[in-house]
Simulated assay, not measured.
Amino acid sequence: MSTRAPAPPPVTPAGQGVGPLLRAWREERRVSQLELSLRADSSARHISFIETGRSRPSEEMVLRLAEHLDVPMRERNALLLAAGYAPRFPETPLDDPAMGPLREGIERLIQGFEPYPALVVDAHYTVVAANRGIAMILDGLPEHLLTPPVNAVRITLHPEGLAPRIRNLAEWRGHLLHQMRGQIALRRSPELRKLYEEVAAYPVPDAPAYHPEERAPVPYIALPMVLEHAGHTLSFVSSISTFNTPMDVTVAELAIETLLPADPATVKYLHSLMA
């Protein structure tokens, strides 16, 4: 699998207004002016006028077009600013007192998954919360990888991190890099692209030979991460959840990842650790 990141969408120079920005997002999403106009209950002529600067869209129209182009919330604020409107969505730091109930809810949620590993990451895969199941998986890793801010992708693919313990490293590495390329295309984040270039360049350490037939036949429902831990072979499938209808940039960029056991042996082992 190629690990080359997709070319970034056209970058609109400052001062050109909202039209070129909207056109860049539309082209990135491979949507025609006609298709977008039908989705947004407008006309192709009006969309063309907006993109060329002949017509200034209303605030409602900017948000409607952004919604139908699946523009991330952070970038919707940028579109509003370019159109001459105030940003609509706040970006509240996670340690702000107003975020207290959210932080407590997240902690209760991931603790409720124990003994199964669960963590919460931001848009750059920085870990903002993790439960004891994650601590178990990371046990024994070098301090420089565990010093905050801890990055979930870096700690997974680093040759001194989990990579040597992942028995199906080639498949899991390909999955993570593919996921990151999709996020780069969605968010246009220079920080995320820099992280991608870093982890994609890591040397791939030798991992223990992985022969799926060694394990009891299990009908996997998704690609598992097969991990060696203290002489045991554990198998997990990953589930990622986000918040529904967020109205804050910080909340919109949070993702909750849970690692669910993919076989009975992993279930038994994890419960024995907590016991």
Rank of each mutant, 00 (worst) to 15 (best):
M1A: 15
S2Y: 02
T3M: 05
T3L: 08
A5V: 01
A7Y: 02
P9M: 15
P10E: 15
V11T: 14
A14G: 08
A14I: 06
G15R: 07
G19N: 12
L21V: 10
E27P: 04
E27N: 08
R29Y: 01
V31G: 03
V31M: 15
V31N: 07
V31Q: 13
S32I: 14
L36G: 02
L36I: 05
L38E: 15
A44G: 06
H46M: 13
I47T: 10
F49T: 10
G53M: 08
G53A: 05
R56T: 13
E59R: 14
V62L: 02
L65V: 13
H68M: 11
L69Q: 03
D70P: 01
M73W: 05
R74D: 11
N77R: 06
N77W: 02
A78G: 08
A78C: 07
L79K: 12
P87R: 06
P87E: 03
R88H: 15
D95N: 14
G100E: 08
P101V: 07
L102A: 10
E104V: 09
R108F: 12
R108Y: 06
I110K: 00
Y116L: 09
A123R: 15
H124T: 12
Y125C: 09
N131C: 07
N131Y: 02
R132W: 00
R132N: 11
R132I: 01
E143C: 00
H144E: 14
L146F: 03
V153S: 03
R154C: 01
I155T: 15
I155N: 05
H158S: 00
E160R: 00
R167D: 00
L169S: 00
R173E: 04
H175F: 09
Q179E: 11
Q179T: 12
R181L: 07
Q183M: 14
I184R: 00
A185S: 14
P190M: 11
L192K: 02
R193I: 01
E198F: 00
A201T: 00
Y202Q: 09
D206F: 05
P212K: 12
E213A: 15
E214I: 04
L227R: 09
E228R: 06
L234R: 04
F236L: 06
V237Y: 03
V237E: 04
S239F: 13
S241Q: 14
T242N: 12
P246W: 08
M247G: 08
T250A: 06
V251D: 07
A255G: 13
P261Y: 07
A262S: 11
A265R: 11
A265Q: 09
V267C: 11
K268F: 03
L273C: 15
A275G: 13
